[in-house]
Design a protein around this nucleic acid. Sequence first.
DNA 1: TCAGTCACTTGTAAAAAACAAGCCACTATG
DNA 2: CATAGTGGCTTGTTTTTTACAAGTGACTGA
Lengths: 153, 153
Amino acid sequence: MAKVDLSSMPCSIARSLDVIGEGWTILVLRDVFRGIRRFDELQRDLGIATNVLTARLKRLVDEGLLERRRYEQRPPRYEYHLTAKGRDLFPVLIALVNWGDKYLAGSSGPPRVMIHEACGKPTSPILVCSECGEAVGPGALRLLTREEPSKSA
Amino acid sequence: MAKVDLSSMPCSIARSLDVIGEGWTILVLRDVFRGIRRFDELQRDLGIATNVLTARLKRLVDEGLLERRRYEQRPPRYEYHLTAKGRDLFPVLIALVNWGDKYLAGSSGPPRVMIHEACGKPTSPILVCSECGEAVGPGALRLLTREEPSKSA
DNA sequence: TCAGTCACTTGTAAAAAACAAGCCACTATG
DNA sequence: CATAGTGGCTTGTTTTTTACAAGTGACTGA
């Protein structure tokens, strides 16, 4: 996964992975979702090498998922905040949580429980059709391949 | 991302990534979801090195996401099929598709369109609370950390 | 002045992936 | 029955990516 150019593949999964598929990236985003915003906090929490953390944060800022915000003028200090583009990865993280909770939790149950604040109950969010509201699973969707402009009119 | 033991972290995202976070793994699963099931078809479609494909398939079978099914006795030939555990990653892939469609599609729009067969409309599935059915976004959930058995009674 | 903090950068070693080639048990073709 | 081809790999070797360790610069606070 080094030479391959995922970003130019006609597949949104591949293109998404090009941005967030590198090692650590999703865990960095998870931490930022949890309110961890500063370089050293991220480094301590993840146990990541600092040069790798620098590279991942730079990429996430360059791609517009995080915003590098100066919170102190002198000396310059920065915090990383989610943009709308970054926040929209929320469903990806929740889907990973649900799957891990279901299959990798072990006998003691999942490490965390999600409570839906609006209804007060422990929840495992599910996917529903944006148009009719019905739950969708594999097999419920048909894929139409659109023509690429370069391949035909 | 080599020395770190994601599987033992008290976080379902990290544990999930331990299983499906290696390079190529999600694209292999995507192909199997699309009906590509044989070694050489996967290799051609992905352009992946054969030794890497071998390793990924082995891992996915070992982890119980794919089943290695013999479809010809002599000489032995195999197909890889999703198990229930593998199929349950569907929401992860859909979430990646939605995000890629929204942010990485470019001017020509997303490369594929998903049609919900039950209602017949193009759809971008959304996450709703499993208990009350309301859409959930970041901020709608509160996380409760459960104690690990080893840390307290 | 001196230790400490934050946000890094710069080496270098180790691990993983990519690339290329080869192998084995067949089957189908002439 | 010799030859070419296929499916599903394995085994080197090179290249790329990560990990680890150390150091830097601009400060703050005691």
